[in-house]
Design a protein around this nucleic acid. Structure first.
Lengths: 211, 211
DNA sequence: GCGCATGGTTAGCGGCGTTAGGTTACCGTC
DNA sequence: GACGGTAACCTAACGCCGCTAACCATGCGC
């Protein structure tokens, strides 16, 4: 784990080390479950290289973590995509919400840096990052669009558009997920029950006709 | 701001410096809007004292920040208490939710260390901290109790108890609040509208009878 | 007036992110 | 096949950080 012997990369293969650095940073994040433990020096030692070498591949630590973020977002989107079977949009949103919280609990530190850390991105970068169709938020937007199109939404919500509704749902599941991640020591009641009531509650509040 | 001249505290007045340290830490947090900027050394310089002196009054940095947290929680509870006028529990919960998000936006860094940082407290400490009647969570629990007692809650929710319902509401408002705080650069749609729909939506999902 | 707890100080340790500048090995060129 | 250029990585060091050890001064209680 500490320092495997390294053979220097060939001419055009500098990106190999870049990938190793990213993987090491991710591993460190998972193993230590602490963002502080992911120091430039620790990552460098894990890949068997000195600290300044990191800066050949990442302009600074924030950019390294941001790249880890991007990886996490991709895996996050995959995890959400897997539960998104065919069916009515309500069911799809329900599945999305449950998978969302589950992912946060499975990868708490990844969730932290994705949604609880403040990276100073421009609105431009955010737009690219989040609203792309393959992103997790893109998935959500697609489902809220379906929901609006289904006509079963409260009219005043439907007029606000998919983004607004998406953020409402996002807020709801993120609220529970982030609290569970941030305060694991709290005497939480049954988590599954909370997720259940929260997700079904949100869906209920969206529906025009209370069935 | 940097170093006012200090006269040494008298025998029993060591707590005076302790208070000054706390206030300086809070000021730094507000002015710099960054938790990283609140270093032991910076705080020490702000009160006109050397860094090690801090440790006469706080065992370590975490405990200092935790104390700042306690201050914040107290002010937070005050802010919530102020909007808690008489009336039906639904209205009180509504007011609580709106004040909650408003506070987070007014004091984002305080909100961060209160609800988005991970302090390793014991369950015991949490219990004392949060469920005390004067605390913000205590206020919330009181209102959710009223709500359950009113009999207008969905029966399956009412049986889960005030804590469960309180956490559901807390999650909901915290979700939006924390996202707004964590990602200020995102192209958010109208915030007031979001708070509106979120809070009324949560209340609607609680109600047994959709009026 | 003396002892001693209280409320500070100076000096320094190890770790952090980061930079400057040097070194090594590969690769295309002549 | 020697050679210059450059990509890839190194050593050394700066200025921060949290924190500790050890020392000093003040002023109260006796």
């Amino acid at each position: 784990m500490t320092a495997p012997p390294r053979t220097r990369s060939r001419r055009g293969e500098g990106d190999r080390l870049r990938e190793e650095i990213l993987l090491a940073a991710e591993s460190l994040l998972i193993e230590t479950a602490s963002q502080d433990a992911v120091s430039i020096r620790a990552v460098a030692e894990a890949v068997g290289v000195t600290a300044p070498s990191i800066y050949r591949h990442f302009v600074d630590k924030d950019m390294l973590l941001l790249e880890v973020c991007r990886h996490s977002f991709a895996r996050f989107a995959d995890a959400l995509g897997e539960v998104l079977h065919d069916g009515p949009p309500e069911d799809r949103l329900d599945a999305l919400g449950r998978a969302y919280v589950r992912y946060a609990l499975d990868f708490p530190e990844h969730y932290r840096i994705m949604f609880m850390a403040r990276f100073e991105l421009s609105a431009q970068e955010y737009a690219e990052e989040m609203v792309s169709d393959e992103s997790s938020f893109g998935l959500l937007l697609r489902v809220t669009s379906e929901l609006i199109d289904s006509g079963r939404l409260r009219p005043e919500l439907a007029t606000r558009g998919p983004l607004h509704v998406g953020i409402l749902f996002w807020s709801t599941v993120h609220g529970l997920a982030s609290l569970l991640v941030a305060k694991p020591g709290l005497p939480w009641p049954d988590r599954d029950l909370l997720v259940d009531d929260l997700v079904t509650g949100a869906l209920r509040s969206f529906r025009a006709d209370p069935a």
